[in-house]
């Protein structure tokens, strides 16, 4: 019984983490129709920014609780800067290319960022575990969790609520939905699609960086951490259906729960299980669980 509960709790925590990062990927795809293969690198970039920020913060001997502010600020600043540079400096050059060519462009971007991170931060691991201890522990029955893990869940729920209510209830959200639905028609309606693309890209980049920053204290931040993340995020968005926020929630929950079940009951198949479930979903629902059919007009 307690192991089932543990699977559930671990699964939800993992899902929250997945969602925070994957929803950025979804947003970028929705607005720009670009599947960002460099999304994992944005995550890694966030983690490194956070590691640096926390290192400086604790070295300065400031009050420990302020570390959380440092985590969020590092993600925000790092995400905005990186998003701005990449969108303005690189993606703009390739505007209007086929989605498959853009996939290659973001793959190249991934390669560049991998090495750029090594050049900036070197190849030695960064360990900044201090914030982990600050939130105490939470006991659920016989299970004990660091309070920090629930912070990720809270952040994911907040991100979800803010994004959904922005899209559904504000005037800007309505415009953004129009762009997601059909960029060409939107631009003929006088919507500045270019600006919204930038907004979406930066938001996506900040979310990925936030995922990385929140993760940084729980791991050792090392080169190559982007790689696993990006393929896992693909699994999430594919299961849910590309470009759909409710789909991303479901996708994150499916992957999170499947993975935590695998870790508890059959650790050998951990990685395998995620993609097997993904393949299974696609056999039944070729466009993912939430995507609408696209019929080409003739």
């Amino acid at each position: 019984m307690s192991s089932l509960l543990a699977v559930l709790i671990d699964g939800v925590m993992h899902a929250a983490w997945l969602f925070t990062i994957a929803v950025g990927l979804t947003l970028i795809y929705g607005v720009m129709k670009i599947l960002n293969m460099a999304h994992g690198s944005f995550y890694a970039f966030g983690a490194y920014c956070c590691a640096t920020a926390l290192g400086q913060y604790f070295a300065a001997g400031l009050p420990p609780m302020g570390a959380f502010l440092a985590i969020f600020m590092s993600a925000l600043i790092g995400g905005i800067l990186l998003g701005l540079i990449v969108e303005r400096g690189i993606l703009r050059l390739f505007g209007g290319r086929d989605p498959i060519v853009m996939l290659l462009v973001t793959y190249a971007l991934f390669l560049v960022l991998e090495d750029a991170i090594k050049l900036i931060w070197g190849v030695d691991p960064y360990i900044v575990g201090e914030p982990l201890g600050l939130l105490g522990v939470v006991k659920i029955g016989t299970l004990v969790y660091p309070g920090y893990n629930f912070l990720v869940v809270v952040v994911a729920v907040l991100v979800c609520v803010v994004l959904t209510s922005f899209l559904q209830q504000t005037a800007y959200g309505k415009i953004l939905r129009a762009v997601i639905h059909d960029p060409e028609v939107s631009s003929t309606l006088g919507i500045n699609v270019t600006r919204w693309s930038l907004v979406a890209f930066i938001t996506g980049s900040v979310l990925a960086a936030l995922g990385g920053a929140l993760t940084a204290p729980t791991i050792s931040v090392v080169p190559g951490m982007a790689v696993e993340v990006v393929v896992m995020m693909f699994a999430v968005v594919v299961i849910g259906g590309l470009g759909s926020i409710p789909g991303t929630i479901i996708g994150a929950l499916v992957v999170g729960l499947v993975r935590s079940a695998a870790v508890h009951f059959w650790p050998e198949v951990e990685l395998f299980s995620i993609y097997a479930v993904m393949a299974l979903v696609l056999v039944v629902k070729p466009k993912g669980l939430f995507a609408g059919m696209e019929l080409r007009k003739i």
Binding site: I90, L104, V105, Y107, A108, F110, L111, V112, D115, L119
Partner: peptide
Amino acid sequence: LVLGVIIF
């Protein structure tokens, strides 16, 4: 990095 730039 070189590889990426070549693709670009």
